[in-house]
Amino acid sequence: MPTDLIDELKSNISLLQNQPLSGGIVAKNLRISDNGSGELTLYGDFTITLKVLDLTTNGAPDLNSLMTFTQQVITSKLRGGGYKSGINFLKYNAVKKAFDKDKTWTYSIRYNFNFSVNVIQINMLNQLRGNDFVLAVVDSIGHQFTDQYGKRHYSGGLTNGKGGPAVITYDIWKKNRYLGVHEFFHTLGLDDIEDHGKKERLMYHLDDNTGQSISDTERGDMMHFIMGDLRRMLKGNYSNVSNNTIQLLRIFINNKTNGFKYNKAKFR
């Protein structure tokens, strides 16, 4: 796959030149341990970077504090890795250190990953790379959604699908400090929860949360999203594929159905 190949080459060249890798996900020291009884333990050191672009008209004086909080919560939620059973995949051959192309196996996977999370502010679009994660902060969002009970809500944040850019209203982020993490976890592959019986969960999105917990399944799903492909564990290191973040953000933020109000002069 050309994009993968280019990303891998860039990643390897950067490593050889001993330059710090840039991008949403940068992984090093990846390896697999097989206990021989159907459990694989995956090891790796991951650096995750979320770039915050302030597009508010009157500035965002609390932005640094919100970014620090977001960084701390993301770090704490990802800490300890994850575990997921019932994973169907190709059979791993520990001697050859390869996945068999023809044989399959059902594994339990223990994600023993270390995370270093950066949440940094950027001022210009050219500070974004193709595979970065971005959170744009705006004045307001006109978009509304209907929940499963038929009630309409205004959106405090919007994420453009898994892996995509997110946009957040500054004033609502100030009121709900977890909103930045919530949006970023959409980027990392999690879905919203609307079940009134699960108000204690971070991904419950109907305003009256009673907590911010993440389930084991959600943690396992995020770990899998961050890893992307089990076969990458054999390569030692990788940087996530280019998602063309700048172009995605440009299209997303100019989509009138989303109703973003922001300082257009800052979007340059």
Binding site: H153, L158, N160
Partner: peptide
């Protein structure tokens, strides 16, 4: 839906 680039809203 994964191919439709649908915005995921949060309140």
């Amino acid at each position: 839906d994964a191919g439709r680039s649908i915005a995921i809203p949060s309140q």
